[in-house]
């Protein structure tokens, strides 16, 4: 299985990674090598084997829905690259009509 450049571009976009041309080229080669190693398990006949997503068979761990102390807005915003009026500030998301 070799990964073509279009696939690298597509995955980089999905992963929100603005890679340079040199990085894309290297990534194409390295991912192809790693996937070739994974080829062996692709060829295994695993039909009836159930998948394991987690080592523990836990589901729906719940606690009572009650209000508790949590971080203050000041603490929550203290590490923000940009904040204003008690909110995280980001570049424009919605374009002008």
């Amino acid at each position: 299985m070799s990964l073509d450049r279009a696939a690298v571009d597509h995955v980089a976009r999905l992963a929100r990674l603005d890679l340079t041309d040199a990085e894309r080229e290297r990534m194409q080669k390295e991912l192809t090598d790693i996937l070739a190693h994974a080829e062996k398990i692709q060829n295994l006949d695993l039909g009836p084997v159930p998948p394991t997503s987690h080592a523990l068979a836990l589901s729906n761990v719940l606690r009572p829905d009650e209000a508790r102390p949590s971080l203050s807005p000041e603490e929550a915003l203290a590490n923000a690259p940009d904040a204003q009026d008690g909110r995280f500030r980001v570049p424009r998301i919605i374009e002008d009509a």
């Binding site: 994974a38 398990i41 692709q42 295994l44 084997v49 159930p50 394991t52």
Partner: peptide, 15 residues
């Protein structure tokens, strides 16, 4: 299915 799904099944076999 080809990658993540298979890997999870191998995880079962190892267990």
């Amino acid at each position: 299915d080809a990658y993540y799904g298979k890997a999870q099944k191998v995880r079962t076999l190892i267990t």
